[in-house]
Nucleic acid binder design. Structure first.
Lengths: 207, 207
DNA sequence: GGTCAACTTTAGCCAAGACTAAAAAAAAGT
DNA sequence: ACTTTTTTTTAGTCTTGGCTAAAGTTGACC
């Protein structure tokens, strides 16, 4: 991997871990990063220092790291690329949505602004990727995604639609085998028939 | 760049320089490689040793290097990926044919057999890329391209069609400004009105 | 055939990013 | 509050691929 690719991977990890939790805090621990990236903690410390030097992250020793606004902007550009490529792979090349992550992981590091913008246009400026995750626009903002929440947090409902799925490839594959995917309609009954572990992973909207 | 990417770049240089010349010999000098890749000769020597170790090239000290059959197979796979991506960029994303080389250079290093094959299918199994260069098939063979030769070597003719262009991006751009591109029709008159330097670069077929 | 120029290889060094082992700081338990 | 455990950082090493400088080969020109 190039120097740039390594930095981008750490930026993305910082973004993903800082925004994923339900907590408000954006500080990410060294251990979290190391686990997420599949490297040892000292490697993360070293790279965080580099990102700090570049003005993309700030570091509070023995406490954690988080993105600066500049770093966040770069991370969002990466997320945008990743999700646009995933959309391309599924919608145009006919991949299944659980096959595309690793390929998109490589494609997202291709450096060309023109390429991203043309791809976005080619795909018709999609709002969400095949996993239902929103695609940041070129300026880093998201389209409105209100009313979407995990199935586990939904109270009384008659019918809900799957808007996105937050799960690893293996789980995605299992869901697909059960006929579960983007746009699937769910009823109260599914709350008991589906594996309970899936409920927090299914992002739904009542209808 | 990853370990793999570096190796692939040297493989491709070995292929390009070994097959480009009019000469039959496939031996490529260290200096040629260094110039082509934008590195210094000692770096090439070191990488050639690595490729030799991997069984992808053979090295005659102070004489040159060339691909083994195994190395040639790998190089052809890279050429295939490069030209398929160039085709995608021009035909689907609407890039001009003189803008795509650098982007394809990055895309060709993405590692996924399934991706290449799906891309090939998506593009309708094209025989040539936007520069008119033939695209190797998955088994490393080319489709028939007989009757195509540089304009400079064409004798008497009434009308010829441009099948490909072997030029750098700058020249490609200048050609496009003159209305010259894939499929352009040429007459005897063009032999004197076009820049003489272009004649060996224009691959044509009489019609 | 001898000398000189050009090219290639070897030797030795630097940078980036990974690792292990050890030291330092923070958190947890009693 | 003190000790122990966990987490993080520092120190030092390895690998990969680049570089410069020096030594070795080849080949060309008298």
């Amino acid at each position: 991997m190039s120097k740039t690719t390594h930095r981008e991977d750490h930026l993305k990890a910082l973004y993903a871990l800082g925004h994923s939790g339900d907590s408000e805090s954006e500080w990410v621990s060294t251990n979290q990063m190391a686990t997420h990236l599949g490297v040892k903690p000292p490697s993360v410390t070293a790279m965080v220092h580099v990102l700090t030097e570049l003005g993309w992250a700030e570091h509070r020793p023995y406490h954690g790291a988080r993105l600066t606004p500049a770093g966040e902007k770069l991370a969002l550009a990466l997320v945008r690329k990743h999700r646009l490529w995933e959309t391309f792979l599924v919608e145009r090349l006919g991949f299944e949505w659980d096959e595309v992550h690793d390929i998109a992981e490589q494609l997202e590091h291709v450096d060309s602004v023109a390429l991203v913008e043309r791809l976005d246009q080619y795909l018709g400026h999609p709002d969400v990727d095949p996993h239902g995750d929103p695609i940041p626009k070129a300026d880093g903002t998201f389209r409105n995604m209100e009313g979407v929440m995990p199935l586990s947090e939904l109270g009384e409902f008659e019918c809900a639609v799957v808007m996105g799925v937050k799960a690893n490839d293996q789980t995605l594959s299992a869901m697909r085998d059960r006929g579960l995917g983007l746009g699937s309609k769910l009823t109260k009954n599914d709350l008991v028939t589906l594996p309970q572990a899936w409920l927090p992973q299914l992002m739904v909207k009542t209808s």
